[in-house]
Amino acid sequence: MAHQPAQERQARTYNGFGAIALGLLSGALAIWLVMERPGGSTIGIALLLFLATAWCWAGLYMLQPNQAAILLFFGSYRGTDRSEGLRWAIPFYSTGKISVRARNFNSEKLKVNDLRGNPIEIAAAIVWRVEDTARASFDVENYEAYVLTQAEAAVRHLASRYAYDNLQVDEHGNASAEITLRSGTEEVALAMRTELQARFAQAGISVLDAKLTHLAYAPEIAGTMLRRQQAEAVVAARSKIVQGAVGMVELALKGLEQRGLVDLDDERKAAMVSNLLVVLCSDHDATPVVNAGTLYT
């Protein structure tokens, strides 16, 4: 027979101050009967009134804000009370308290492999709370330990679904639109919350927020990946410089032709383009050479 998950339901409880008032009233009445009307029958009624006082006071318990009480009747679940303050339930009920406040969990730095197999270090901060007290109490052995274990498993699985960084570029030197752990912050956080919620559902836990707090390459490859990133940055910068230089040379040639300042053949145009590109793309300041003759000497 398949296991049926527990389901939280509202317990039938009452205001505790009313129970205190009834207990005081019955106790005072019992004392009055013993003192004012002594006798065999009166003693019996007084004992019943004292028992009623004990019954009223034995079922008292107190709940703080964002705290719930699990009520059991000889091991049978009778419901959950989420009403704060002084409460009263049948004294035969056993009461177990559980916090429904938001809690924060910071995972340890985990060493895992990303989508491309690169070892990385990753950690996350998860905000969660107990949503279904019945499931948290009866469907898992220890819901706090369950959260820690499932959170670590979810972070490990998340890291294996994405690459740390986008290392694939097109022919123009632009990175592809792939979602990565480093660039896709919002998408990765949403995916982590979705997976955590699916894992926590069995324990009646709700995920309020989840974000990565640490992300880095593992120490053994950090230096290599840094050099690779620096090289990619240099290539991207060079590509922009060359594109800009080509545009400037094109504008210079068009300006000379439109104004009729000089008439260049194809060979001289090629030489001029070469000189301009060298000047514009060089890492060092250009050293001009003054030609005292004609343009063709």
Rank of each mutant, 00 (worst) to 15 (best):
Q10S: 13
A11D: 03
R12T: 12
R12H: 13
T13K: 03
G18C: 08
A19V: 03
I20R: 01
I20W: 07
A21T: 12
L22A: 11
L24I: 11
L25A: 14
S26A: 14
A28Y: 12
I31S: 09
L33E: 01
P38D: 11
T42Q: 13
I43K: 08
L49R: 02
A54P: 04
A58G: 04
Y61I: 05
P65K: 01
I70E: 00
F73L: 11
R78S: 07
T80C: 07
L86D: 08
L86W: 06
W88M: 03
A89E: 00
S94C: 06
G96N: 11
R101A: 11
N104D: 09
S107L: 07
K111R: 15
K111G: 09
N113D: 12
L115V: 06
N118S: 13
N118A: 12
P119D: 02
E121R: 08
A124E: 02
V127S: 09
W128L: 04
V130G: 00
E131L: 10
E131R: 08
D132E: 07
D132K: 04
T133L: 04
R135N: 00
E141V: 12
E144R: 10
V147K: 04
V147R: 05
A154P: 04
A154G: 04
R156N: 12
Y162N: 06
Q168Y: 11
H172I: 01
S176Y: 14
T180Y: 03
R182K: 15
E187R: 11
L190V: 15
L190R: 13
A191G: 05
A191Y: 01
M192S: 02
R193W: 06
E195A: 13
L196H: 00
A198K: 14
R199T: 02
G204R: 01
S206F: 07
D209W: 02
D209H: 10
L212W: 02
T213D: 06
H214L: 14
A216Y: 03
E220T: 10
E220P: 06
A222N: 06
R227Q: 14
A233M: 10
V234Q: 15
V235K: 12
K240P: 01
V242N: 06
V242I: 15
G244A: 12
G244F: 04
G244D: 10
G244Y: 05
M248I: 15
L251G: 13
L253C: 02
L253E: 07
Q258M: 10
G260H: 06
V262L: 12
V262Q: 09
V262S: 00
D265L: 10
D265C: 06
D265K: 09
E267A: 15
A270N: 09
A270P: 05
A271Q: 15
A271L: 15
V273K: 13
V273M: 09
V278E: 12
V279C: 07
L280G: 00
H284T: 13
D285E: 14
A286I: 01
A292M: 10
Y296D: 14
